[in-house]
Design a protein around this nucleic acid. Structure first.
Lengths: 198, 198
DNA sequence: CCCAGTGATGTCAGTTGCTGACATCACTCA
DNA sequence: TGAGTGATGTCAGCAACTGACATCACTGGG
């Protein structure tokens, strides 16, 4: 290979736009094709046209590439909870905040479904997902306390809300996205309400 | 060092009883002393008087050493749920199963508290703990379905029960183990019940 | 009493995830 | 046009794991 070609290729690779997006797509594709454990970060970097070092500058570890933007979700839910009218039932506040947040996944149906399949097949990715959900749960609980809900009520209502998020999302995926996600979430929470009346 | 001494030492190290227990104590001590990330598996093995390879024969990874016996807990909860009298309220079934399971921690108060502190300070250990709780949740949901509870009710009731487990345990630790853990768990679940009545 | 079998351990080499230090490149703006 | 800035590349190195093979302690039958 001539030096000119090498120079040209390296220039393209260096500043091609959307390196993050390329890495995310490369990772999801590779994880789906050959499994998470069988994929190396070097492979992801190569397919995205960057070096391994660049990958680790964008993402903390091999898993984090599938969990970008989790912080925005958390902030959105907390803000929605905080902005709800006073005297609204806390369980409804959390339920609606979660339902509206999960609805944004509807715009990326295909991506969300592929990602969910990979996560479901990989314990180490489930761990990370659970940690993100725990962050969401803590943010929700803090927002509820900010509304005057005491403990342990705030924590338990937050647990229920995030639980509905998870159960509703899984039902949405399992059903081939038949009903809107938000409805699945509301159904899950309604079921708990009914059971809690015992 | 003479060859005789080497032989004697290696004999002691090789078959000294309770290698697992020694490794667990060594790991918890080191994690508490200098932090999880600053501790190497080689240090744990050395303090326990074994090689690193032996450590990895007993525990799948650096974290698993603090999560031994999680499977027994899971099985106990599932069995208790399955054995509950028919027609008992599902939320009560899960709540009591979890309350009785968590009570065994009372026998190891000190260990439980030290372990909880280390986990609370280490995101990577929290991930593993959340994965174990997810396993408990799934086992509880499956046991409920075995009792005829349909979805999404079974999953949501299981979420609530495991949520009460977590919230109750945290309250128990935070309060310096003032009240029995089981009572903390029951209080958490009662709070959710009250809030669900809206 | 000995010896083959079994299971736990030790040794060693190798891969992969991840990090720090430093150089290089494309683009910006004075 | 040249210094500054931010993203990238290069390289060396540590720590978490894993597979293959040797070795040791204990067991049971002969």
């Amino acid at each position: 290979m001539s030096e000119a070609v090498i120079t040209r290729l390296s220039r393209m690779a260096r500043w091609e736009p959307d390196a993050r997006g390329r890495m995310t797509r490369a990772a999801l594709d590779l994880y789906a094709e050959q499994g998470f454990e069988q994929t190396t970060t070097a492979q992801i970097a190569e397919r995205a046209g960057v070096t391994e070092r660049t990958y680790f500058r964008h993402f903390a570890d091999k898993r984090e590439v599938l969990f970008d933007g989790g912080h925005e979700l958390e902030a959105a839910v907390a803000a929605t909870i905080a902005a709800a009218p006073d005297a609204t039932d806390p369980l409804d506040v959390v339920g609606e905040a979660v339902a509206s947040a999960v609805a944004v996944l509807e715009e990326r149906r295909e991506f969300a479904a592929r990602r969910a399949a990979v996560v479901a097949a990989t314990p180490r990715l489930q761990e990370r997902e659970l940690l993100k959900l725990a962050g969401l749960r803590d943010a929700a609980a803090a927002a509820l306390r900010g509304r005057g809900v005491p403990e342990p009520d705030a924590s338990m209502v937050a647990e229920a809300g995030v639980g509905a998020f998870r159960v509703g999302f899984e039902a949405w995926i399992a059903s081939g996205q038949a009903r809107p996600v938000a409805d699945e979430v509301r159904s899950a929470l309604a079921a708990l309400r009914a059971r809690a009346r015992g």
